Amino acid sequence: MNKACFSIAFLAALSLAACNSSQDGAARQGEAPLAGASIGGPFTLTNQDGAKVSWKDFDGQYRIMYFGYSYCPDICPLDLQKLMQGYRQFAKQDSARAARVQPIFITIDPERDTVPVVKNYVSAFDPKLIGLTGTPEEIAKVAKEFAVYYAKDGKDGASDYLVNHSRSPYLMGPDGKPIAILPTDQPNTDEDEGSPQAVAAELDRWVK
């Protein structure tokens, strides 16, 4: 796995410590795995069309949240591909429930991921996918709210660099509270690198 897009198990354990200890039991009882976790919060960013978008604009919708960057060499595009393939499978099963789900990509590399770059990037995955960028300060704030780690891997001032970051695709509820982490890292029976079926199954489980 390229270290620019790795999953940081230790940081994830810290950020989800409040819910992980009872996650398996809670899931068996029908409670959301991330119920009570301190993930998510208000923000205002800029979408791929240059318009300001706030967290409240998505009230009443389920939200798939993915943090990454367009220059990510491998893992980010694979994750987004699985997420959107899983979403489309879910939409084929139940278009009415799928209409209540909004997939959202938020860059953690705002210096390079400008509005035109983000627009071009998200359009490669699905018309439903919204891309958000902002100032470095705005991105830092929203990343903190969503317990997302990221850090440049390169010399200061260089234009060619990678960004180390955590990768946890969150499913958030209509009230903006966290429900579950979508399983993009679970293998399929047919292909080692994909899990759109698992994503679709998780959406089917939690989207009402």
Rank of each mutant, 00 (worst) to 15 (best):
V199R: 00
S166K: 03
A180E: 08
A4V: 08
K177R: 07
L34D: 03
P110Y: 09
F58C: 07
L132H: 04
E191I: 09
P178M: 02
S7K: 11
W55Y: 12
D24P: 01
W206M: 08
P187T: 09
A12F: 11
G134M: 08
L45M: 07
T189F: 14
R97Y: 04
G86I: 00
F90N: 00
L80D: 01
A96G: 00
S195E: 11
A143W: 09
G194K: 00
I139Y: 04
L162E: 11
L203Q: 01
R205D: 06
K152E: 13
Q89L: 12
P136C: 08
K92D: 14
K92I: 05
G173T: 00
A180D: 14
G41N: 04
Q85V: 08
I104W: 02
N2C: 15
A37F: 03
G134N: 06
P127W: 01
M1A: 14
S123R: 05
A13E: 15
K82L: 12
S70F: 01
E111K: 12
L171Y: 01
L182N: 05
P127G: 11
I181C: 07
D185V: 06
I181Q: 04
A140W: 07
V117E: 05
L14F: 14
G68N: 05
F67Q: 06
A147M: 12
P73R: 08
Q61D: 11
G154K: 11
V207S: 05
Y121H: 04
A151Y: 14
K82N: 15
N120Y: 08
S195H: 06
G40N: 03
K119N: 10
G194V: 10
D185R: 05
D49H: 07
T184M: 10
D153H: 15
D59A: 08
G60L: 00
T114N: 04
A18H: 07
K3H: 15
R205N: 07
F6L: 13
K82E: 15
K208V: 03
P42V: 01
I106R: 01
P178G: 09
G30I: 00
E202I: 00
F6E: 13
D49E: 13
A143T: 13
Q102Y: 08
G30R: 02
C5S: 15
A91C: 06
V118A: 01
V207Y: 01
T189K: 13
R205V: 02
K177W: 00
A143F: 11
L162Y: 09
E138Q: 15
G176F: 00
E31S: 09
F58A: 12
E202Q: 12
S21I: 15
S15Q: 14
I181G: 03
Q29R: 09
H165P: 07
Q89I: 09
F125A: 08
A27R: 05
L203R: 01
